[in-house]
Design a protein around this nucleic acid. Sequence first.
DNA 1: CGGGGGTTTGAGTCCGTTCAAAATACGTGG
DNA 2: CCACGTATTTTGAACGGACTCAAACCCCCG
Lengths: 242, 242
Amino acid sequence: MDDAQGTHPRTNCFSCRGRAQSEWCALDHGDVALLNDCKASNVYQPGQTIFTQGAACLGVFCVETGAVAIRKTDVDGNSVIVRLAHAGATLGYRAFFADAPYRASADALMPSRICFIDKVALRKLLGRNPTVGHSFLRHMARDLEEADEARLHAAALPVRARLAHLLLVLKDRFASSTHDGKLVIELPLSRQDMAAMVGTRPETIARAVRGFQDDRIARFDGRRVEVSDLERLLDELDSNEA
Amino acid sequence: MDDAQGTHPRTNCFSCRGRAQSEWCALDHGDVALLNDCKASNVYQPGQTIFTQGAACLGVFCVETGAVAIRKTDVDGNSVIVRLAHAGATLGYRAFFADAPYRASADALMPSRICFIDKVALRKLLGRNPTVGHSFLRHMARDLEEADEARLHAAALPVRARLAHLLLVLKDRFASSTHDGKLVIELPLSRQDMAAMVGTRPETIARAVRGFQDDRIARFDGRRVEVSDLERLLDELDSNEA
DNA sequence: CGGGGGTTTGAGTCCGTTCAAAATACGTGG
DNA sequence: CCACGTATTTTGAACGGACTCAAACCCCCG
């Protein structure tokens, strides 16, 4: 009885595939053992929340498999997905380093196995191995760059271009090319979530999707997208220059 | 002959007032000496650029006095100010930690004395004193939070509310209350730069400013702003809820 | 079969943009 | 100190993209 939902004692940091690309890649044997002992693993179903905006941060989370959305919500209900986290990513570290409550919520987009790492254990690791801190600095630098980039995009590009950009990002992780050479993306997001990613309303996403179909750039069937012409999709990003 | 523009050998990290609030606050005497030896000080006039988007990062910068805008620019000329840096702030650290070229430019908003700290020296400091790394983690966590917050704002709030928010932020650093109790802000930004901060066009800023004047919330005279009713300005932030 | 959420579509409106011109501020040289 | 040229800011009018509100549709699930 270790499946479904509750704590899952059998997961093992040594064999965790995501670790290689994560901040934990430079740990020695003893460090991994420490990590392995203090973590708690959990499986989250789509929609389940991992942590909530406003709550105190008790540690960080580690995505072993699956995908997670980090959302920021307004007093009047407006919300935006500020980033996605995939296998290997560490979650909730911003609040940890700021030593402040979470300023965003995280929920699973698909069934996801996620480990929790306690504050004190993490602090111990940071003390033992300086590379861990460096990895976080690098990781955070990337996230910050992406956030800034998103701001520029939101201000400069129309929804259609932003959606194209989103598809191109999702392609890298969720694309599977078919037999006849066509690119197929299995979206991990609902239309609502796509809207939240792009910073707009679901209705507008629907229209933009329609636009892409009418222009024969891609075919949408639920969460399945067939990109017929990748070039044209790339063109959308800067077609309004010149 | 040490004024105006060129390298300025006389500045001293020991006496630098900004240091207390910066990442360098926990350095011991030896560390500060190291910092002091390897840095190069410089005075930048308004409009002068400190570093340029796309260029390689050779180290970080330290604002001793003045204020700096960090801008991100598009291939087709759109640009946004992603953050401001004041006395005590460290500049260009994102590129340093990502070990990548600058993804934004920095230019002075007012006459500013800014020190440059070499890559190798910084690396040495990070090695010697782990608190430095922690400080950067904290600083970056704050910047990331602000970037995310800005994204939500841009998506959810109209220009008028975003401008109100900008004024409230600038107030904290550039306000001087007058004899008769009125709040006065001396803006460090041109209208164009305000537009770039809020993510809109100068024309729209002009209209929003007009709006505030018509509603008797504040009086604008060039870069001088008199806020007659701070309450009403605060209300602008969430007046469209309920 | 009958909800109920999510998605799509439509019509109307509003906010912000665009383009163009007038007004103002600013630095420079006469 | 004033005159002038240039850049910034302001204003106006028209346009357009995205939002709102509302209804229809769809799909999944009980």
